[in-house]
């Protein structure tokens, strides 16, 4: 039985962290999309790529990533936040979202990502 690999959209404005996430998730068998460093880039990728899951930094250079989180919610794409802030910094309508603190243990991140999927 074969399973097509899961694709993860990575949104992170710190270049070093973004590259590291990309590498680690690729090593763990995910197809990575991005990393996007801005809200604009991320929204563009969401249109052009098939996204199964998403990892979002909460605060990007010019904005927060909440508009993207709302778009993902509308589309039924599961996501989690990776942030230096805790859940109290979330917009009220996004309180349901999972927030993992930085720096993250990649094994935990992988497990949390797989938990987001139904079944």
């Amino acid at each position: 039985m074969t399973q097509s690999p899961l694709s993860v959209l990575i949104v992170e404005d710190e270049y070093l962290i973004a590259m590291d996430l990309e590498q680690e998730l690729a090593d763990r068998g995910f197809v990575t999309i991005g990393p996007a460093g801005s809200l604009q880039d991320a929204l563009g990728l969401l249109e052009s790529e098939e996204v199964h899951l998403a990892v979002l930094d909460m605060h990007l250079k010019a904005s927060d990533s909440f508009p993207l989180a709302r778009r993902l919610t509308e589309r039924g794409v599961p996501f989690l936040f990776l942030s230096g802030n805790d859940a109290s910094a979330l917009a009220p309508d996004l309180k349901f979202a999972r927030v993992l603190p930085k720096p993250v243990d990649y094994d935990v991140l992988e497990a949390e990502l797989r938990d987001l999927l139904p079944g």
């Binding site: 710190e14 605060h59 942030s83 910094a89 720096p103």
Partner: peptide, 24 residues
């Protein structure tokens, strides 16, 4: 304080990423 905590965690994440990259 919130800003500082945010910066510290981001710095730690950067340091972690830097270590991983260098290791690879």
């Amino acid at each position: 304080l919130r800003e500082l905590s945010h910066r510290v965690k981001n710095t730690l994440a950067t340091v972690q990423a830097m270590a991983n990259h260098t290791m690879r």
